[in-house]
């Protein structure tokens, strides 16, 4: 640990050279909301849930390098309000029907929603048409819940070396696709043991043949909020699987 520090909501946060503001905060046991960040991957900076104010200016904490003397505001009413709006944007963009989702209770989108007090999606639902892909023997893809964090894309390319997923389209039509001529997961070499099968923060990539083995109500984020799990997100953490 170095003796360099910055301030986050009146707390002194030490940091090591090369760490981002968010990594340093998580390392110090201070939770910063996030969805596209994963300790084992390079920061992505797309979900914007980790937005903070640094020296009075909005910044993305997962991609901003830590520096001595920064004044970081995170849990202010203004920033929490923006994060709630971002969550609501993600909720209306997809089709999120939590009561029937196998990921409920393990889902970071849902967990952050509860933690930040998002009681409704607020905006008019967009209702995208995203057919599921049930072609693979072991894995179901329910694209309705995809938040485009690209973690599966990154895991499949960088860890599994398979390049199973990529993105297509732009703006609101942007969507996850499977890299096969048929577009079907069954026609790739994707396997349940792939890293890409374990990183989805929401309920898109789900194992088949095991439903609700842990009852809803007794799942990870049912018992304790995401911030209570802060140790699991530390840059050094050996990450638990995201699967139920």
């Amino acid at each position: 640990m170095s003796d360099q520090t910055f301030t986050l909501d009146d707390q002194e946060i030490p940091f090591a050279p090369g760490q981002s503001v968010m990594q340093a905060a998580l390392d110090a046991g201070v939770f910063v909301p996030h969805l596209c960040y994963h300790p084992e991957f390079r920061p992505h900076g797309s979900c914007k849930l980790c937005t903070v104010k640094i020296n009075g200016r909005p910044a993305t904490s997962c991609t901003t390098p830590a520096a001595a003397g920064l004044n970081v505001e995170s849990n202010t009413p203004e920033i929490l309000d923006k994060r709630r709006t971002l969550l609501q944007m993600l909720l209306v963009e997809g089709n999120h029907f939590c009561p029937s989702c196998e990921k409920s209770g393990h889902c970071k989108l849902q967990a952050l929603g509860y933690e930040l007090g998002v009681m409704t999606p607020h905006f008019n639902l967009i209702y995208p048409d995203r057919p599921v892909d049930a072609s693979h023997p072991d894995v179901l893809l329910d694209f309705n819940r995809c938040i485009l964090c690209e973690l599966c894309i990154r895991a499949s390319a960088e860890v599994d070396k398979k390049n199973v997923f990529s993105l297509s389209g732009r703006g609101i039509t942007k969507h996850l696709i499977v890299n096969a001529e048929s577009g079907r997961l069954a026609d790739t070499d994707f396997a349940l043991t792939d890293k890409a099968a374990q990183v989805c923060p929401v309920g898109v990539i789900l194992p088949k043949k095991q439903g609700f083995s842990i009852p809803i109500g007794r799942r990870r984020y049912d018992a304790a909020s995401m911030s209570a799990h802060v140790d699991e997100f530390k840059p050094t953490a050996k990450v638990q699987e995201e699967r139920p």
């Binding site: 797309s46 914007k48 849930l49 944007m89 963009e93 389209g169 732009r170 703006g171 942007k174």
Partner: peptide, 17 residues
């Protein structure tokens, strides 16, 4: 809304809203 690249949440969804 048409030209948003779709990378980040606020612009991808916000422009369409």
């Amino acid at each position: 809304a048409h030209e948003s690249c779709g990378f980040c949440t606020p612009c991808r969804v916000g422009t369409t809203l």
